[in-house]
Design a protein around this nucleic acid. Sequence first.
DNA 1: CAGCCTAGAATCATGGGACGATTTATGGTG
DNA 2: CACCATAAATCGTCCCATGATTCTAGGCTG
Lengths: 223, 223
Amino acid sequence: MLRMTLNPRSTLVQQVISQLSEQIQAGEWPVGAKIPTEPRLVELLGVGRNTVREAVRALTHAGVLECVQGSGTYVRSTDELTGVVARKFGAAEVGHTIEVRRALEVEAARLAALRRTPEDLDRLDAALTARDAAWATGDTDIFVEADADLHVAVVAAAHNPMLAELYASVGAAIRASVAAAVGPAMRAGTHIDHGRLVAAVRDGDADRAAHEAGRFLEPPTRE
Amino acid sequence: MLRMTLNPRSTLVQQVISQLSEQIQAGEWPVGAKIPTEPRLVELLGVGRNTVREAVRALTHAGVLECVQGSGTYVRSTDELTGVVARKFGAAEVGHTIEVRRALEVEAARLAALRRTPEDLDRLDAALTARDAAWATGDTDIFVEADADLHVAVVAAAHNPMLAELYASVGAAIRASVAAAVGPAMRAGTHIDHGRLVAAVRDGDADRAAHEAGRFLEPPTRE
DNA sequence: CAGCCTAGAATCATGGGACGATTTATGGTG
DNA sequence: CACCATAAATCGTCCCATGATTCTAGGCTG
C-alpha cells in the first residue's frame, strides 16, 4: 500500500481525492475504464472504506467518476470543469452559449494570429481541408464535427491553456444540451469562408483574424 | 423530517446534494453561515450519517461548503463554478487569465451596447462616478474594487447570465491567486478613459464599445 | 447444440456505532 | 481581570452489517 506520507497538510479524504485525480490525469485509468473496487482501493491506499467512498463521491459529483451499483466505478472525464459547466449551464439558452463561444473564439483568433507556430498552421490547413471534404460529403454530423475541429485548432493556436479549457467546456455543454437543434443552424451559416480566418492567422493579422472569427456566429441584433 | 418523495430518479446522496444546494442557493444559509451539524442533518433529512457525510463532502470538494473539525460546516460560496475555476486555474499564468478576461469583457461590451436598459445606464454612470471618486482618493485597494465594479456592471448590462457567471469566476480566480501583483499593473493602465466605453454602450455602438473594452487590457504583443 | 433463465457472486448504497482529533465554551485560580 | 485546565461540541476516520443492483456462470429446455 502506498502511504501518503507527504503533504500532511489536509484531511485524508482530500489526499485520496488528489491521489485519484492525479492517477486519472496521468492516464493510469483512461476514460471509460473501471477503477479498482472499493475494498481494493481501501487496501491500495491504506485508508478506511468511508474515506474512499467520500473521495469517490466527491469526484462523482464533480463529473470525473461514475458509479454503477453492481458493476463498478468508471472514469467519465478527466476534467471536472466540463461537468460543472454542463450542470450549471445545461439549461442555459442556446443564444447565450453562442455568445460565450463567440467571445472566446474571437479572442482566440486574435491570439492565434500573434502566436501561431508552423505546426499550428499545418494543423489549421489540415483541419480546413478536412472541413471542406466533410462539406462535400453532405453529411451534417460529419461536417459539424470537422467544423468543430477547425475551431478547436484555432483556439489551440492561441497557446492559452485556460482559454482552451474554457472553450472545450463550453463546447461540450452546448453539444450535450442541444446538439440536434444547433446542427442545422450551424450548417446554414456554413457558406462563410473559413479560409479567410486561417489566412488572417497565417498573416499574423490579429484584428482581421478576430473580425473573421466573429463573422461565423452572427452578431446579435437588438432585441 | 422532510422526506424526498419526489425525484426517485437518482441515489439518496444525490438527492441530499440537490437538497442542500437548493437551500444554499435559496439563501436559507447565507455565505459564511454555519449549516446544521451532521446529527442534525441526519434527523432533518431522514437519512443516515454516511449519506449526509458523502453529500457534504461532495459539496466541500466543489467549493460550496467548508468543514472545520471541532467547529462546524460553513457555507463558503453559493456557486461551485468559481471553486472549480479557482482550483483549476489557480496556478495559471496571469497573462493567460488576463486574456480570458479580455475575451469576455469585449464581447460583453458589444452585447451591452445592444441590450443595455435605462437601469443599466444608471448603474454604469454610478459605477463610473464611483470609480473616478476612488481614483481621486489615491487608495489602490479602493480604486481596484471600484474599477472591478464598473467592469461587472458592463458585463451585467450584456444580459447574458452565462457570460456573467464565467466572468465572475475568472475574476475571482485571478483575485485569489495574484491580487497583489495585478493591482499596480491595473493602476498603471488606469489613465485610459472608461467614460468612452460607457458612452459607446449608451450610444448602442457595439463595435466602438468592443474596441474601447479591448483597450483596457493591453493586447498582447508577439512573443 | 443454441438460446433462455435462474442462482450465485460481485459491487455499490445505505445505515449504524465507536473512537480520535480539533475547536470552542466553561469555569476555576492567581 | 487574565490565564489556564477541563469539558463539551463537532468533524474525521474506521469498522461492520444489510439491502439493491448488475454481472456471470451454469443448468434447463427446446
